[in-house]
């Protein structure tokens, strides 16, 4: 313990500066993110902009588990998709304004996440991923079979976009974007709030060292269930927006390929919060471009890009950029991380 006195003194100095500068950077990033969210439909076809926003929130919901709690859920389609259906059903049969329908879908996703989470958090690693996948496949099966309610393979068609009789929002995708992106931003804010709460601190502790967290008196499994349910709520919110935006909910939303969108935060960089939106924007834009030029091997391209990014940038695009920028900013305090 003797040799530490000198470096400690130096650390204290940098420590005084670092948090202040970081929080400035944080506000600048927040401003850029907001501007990007607002400007998006001016540059991108509005329904695609809506897709980006919805997938961005889905990616954030996955990152809440993967990046901050260390749980890889491979069944998040269950929450995205079931909310897409429930949102659609509420919108069709009750005729409430779409944010209310989405709220209903989100609550339903959280409701089914309670038993699924309770049963899966007892497993870790690949077993957790497999259990969540199994539950998602069960829900896919139910949706496929319950033809009278879900439309089976035809999906749920003709979901209305009711919004207090404001016609622009109800018919024009450009205005609809602004009405709906508020919900997405609210969801993103909730994720930020969760991660920067005492609860969020416990999550990071659980990710780093679950046994130690238990020895400190934290009921790790209960925390995992709670974050699982919160994450399902965000995925459900995103899925609800998606289904209103498209006007239909299909089995595709419940399929394992949708769960496979866990790659979005990995592309952007897990445990960074911004990584999810970056990954989502990249993939949705790319898929849209490839679809526009009539290329039908989209999976090959996105798959290859995924492999390249994972191999070249271990922390993902955002994570790598952040590390490089931090390294440049405080060069004299560049200690190796992990």
């Amino acid at each position: 313990m003797t040799e530490q006195s000198a470096p400690t003194a130096q650390l204290e100095q940098t420590a005084e500066v670092a948090p202040a500068r970081r929080s400035t950077v944080r506000w600048v990033l927040l401003a850029i993110g907001l501007v990007a969210a607002i400007a998006l439909p001016w540059f991108v076809y509005p329904p695609v902009a809506m897709d980006i926003a919805a997938w961005a929130l889905f990616a954030i919901s996955v990152d809440l588990l993967l990046g901050y709690t260390g749980l890889l859920s491979f069944g998040h389609a269950a929450f995205w998709g079931s909310s897409a259906y429930v949102t659609g059903l509420i919108a069709i049969h009750v005729g409430v304004p779409f944010p209310v329908a989405i709220l209903g879908g989100m609550l339903f996703a959280m409701l089914i996440a309670v038993p699924i989470g309770y049963l899966s958090v007892r497993r870790t690693g690949i077993y957790f991923a497999m259990v969540t996948l199994a539950f998602a496949q069960m829900i896919y099966f139910v949706a496929n079979q319950w033809h009278s309610l879900t439309g089976g393979e035809n999906g749920l068609q003709g979901i209305p976009r009711s919004f207090f009789g404001i016609e622009q929002v109800e018919t024009d995708a450009f205005y609809f974007y602004y009405a709906a992106v508020g919900l997405i931003l609210l969801g993103a804010w909730a994720a930020w709030r969760i991660l920067h709460s005492p609860f969020g601190r416990v999550l990071v502790a659980i990710r780093d060292n679950p046994a130690r967290a238990r020895a400190l008196g934290y009921d790790v499994e209960r925390y995992k269930v709670v974050v699982f349910v919160l994450s399902a709520g965000l995925a459900g919110l995103a899925g609800g927006v998606f289904s209103i935006s498209h006007g239909f909910a299909s089995l595709q939303e419940l399929a394992w390929t949708t769960s496979g969108k866990v790659v979005l935060p990995v592309l952007g960089g897990i445990g960074t919060l911004w990584g999810g939106p970056v990954g989502a924007a990249l993939v949705v834009l790319l898929e849209d471009k490839l679809a526009t030029i009539g290329f039908d091997g989209i999976g090959i391209i996105t798959g290859s890009i995924f492999i390249v990014i994972v191999l070249l940038f271990r922390r993902g695009l955002w994570g790598t950029a952040r590390t490089v920028l931090q390294g440049l900013a405080d060069r004299r305090h560049r200690a190796p991380r992990d």
Partner: peptide, 20 residues
């Protein structure tokens, strides 16, 4: 984290971590 453990503060996902 250790000091907050018996208080149950860790369950509060709606509050700022500045509470710690």
């Amino acid at each position: 984290l250790a000091l907050a453990s018996p208080t149950g503060l860790g369950r509060r996902f709606w509050q700022s971590e500045r509470r710690l």
